[in-house]
Design a binder for these strands. Structure first.
Lengths: 192, 192
DNA sequence: TAACGTTGTCAAAAATCCTAAACACATGGA
DNA sequence: TCCATGTGTTTAGGATTTTTGACAACGTTA
């Protein structure tokens, strides 16, 4: 029931929601209308919230996507606000003065992924008290070089190189070079 | 998305579904109509599937219960499979050799539970003013017997039997026997 | 038994939605 | 430039839903 109040606002704006869903699935009003067996005009009116469609109409339209009524009302389709981010919109995370981290997207609980843009200054090191946490992580080097230790293996990665390992295996990052190292990494689930 | 196909059938019978929900919440067509601000005739026609209501109408009606559109299309009101469990349907959980645990219901992450040991004297009754509150609750009978009403379903549970339901569905406990009933119950979130 | 209140249903009128066909606008080629 | 194509929008009218107001069936109580 907590979901009820949380999702209640969705019910008021079927139009925007339908439009968003339609666009997510890459359909035009006419194409969706053709698949659903309704007219494009009907979809236009619904998306403008100028009419409140009947269940049967909405069902027919969703069948053309296809998407169930339950999913239509339940799923949390992200608005474009949460899709695209400029570089300076990435939230900065203070971890170590020599290590800059910027996270892609907003911190929303329930997410399974966390992407970071990390910058390691020369000599920066996560320390020999190896990191360990739940989940998996991966990354790719953008510039500079990075020494990555996973378990007993260590390798110095160059730009373009990448890694992927289970996060419960002790791991460590270090910049052995003379220029900053930039990499893009991802965690699942978010480690902080 | 997988829920789409699984729940698809529900969409075809809004009427029966609405009627079931209305009865579960103990409302007459007129009472629900009064709360929702529509006419009883409209509800009658909808429940007979003689019309397909508009989203706005259905929303108004559900607001009178109250129940969100999302819950209306999502909840599984009909199947008692996930409500009542026989003694041998409880899954055993090995936590500590000295502690035997048997989990009631299916394992779903995100639950925060409060477990209780309750004793109902013969004739004890929570009353026909059905209980309703946020969250979920479950329980298992230790000794004696307990009549549990959840929505329109009532079942007399014997020792070893158990229940699991959403607490916003009206419910009631009653001891119809001649000896005290002891049960272990759990609430999520804790109700007190 | 009769009076009363409550229930769900139904028929016609009022309100709303959906369709068909056109409109305005933008884009891309010939 | 001009045309063809594709997009979303609008409008009038037919189709559907909702209201209004009444009906019969069922209990309860005097």
């Amino acid at each position: 029931m907590s979901a009820a109040t949380r999702n209640e606002d969705m019910s008021d704006d079927i139009g925007t929601r339908l439009k968003l869903v339609r666009q997510i699935f890459g359909l035009t009003q006419r194409e969706l209308a053709r698949r659903a067996g309704v007219t494009n005009g009907a979809i236009s009116l619904i998306e403008q919230n100028r009419v409140s469609p009947s269940i049967s109409s909405l069902k027919k339209i969703l069948d053309g996507i296809p998407l169930s009524l339950a999913d239509f009302f339940t799923l949390n389709f992200t608005s474009s606000d949460n899709v695209f981010f400029t570089a300076d919109e990435l939230t900065e995370i203070v971890y170590d003065p020599a290590i800059s981290m910027r996270m892609v997207g907003r911190k929303v609980k329930g997410r399974m992924l966390q992407m970071l843009r990390e910058t390691y200054q020369p000599g920066a090191d996560t320390g020999d008290a190896m990191l360990r946490h739940e989940g998996e992580e991966c990354g790719i080097i953008v510039s500079g070089c990075l020494a990555v230790t996973v378990g007993v293996e260590e390798k110095v990665l160059q730009p373009g190189d990448a890694y992927y390992f289970r996060s419960d295996i002790p791991h460590r990052f270090r910049n052995p070079g003379t220029e900053p190292c930039v990499l893009i990494s991802a965690n699942s689930p978010p480690s902080f």
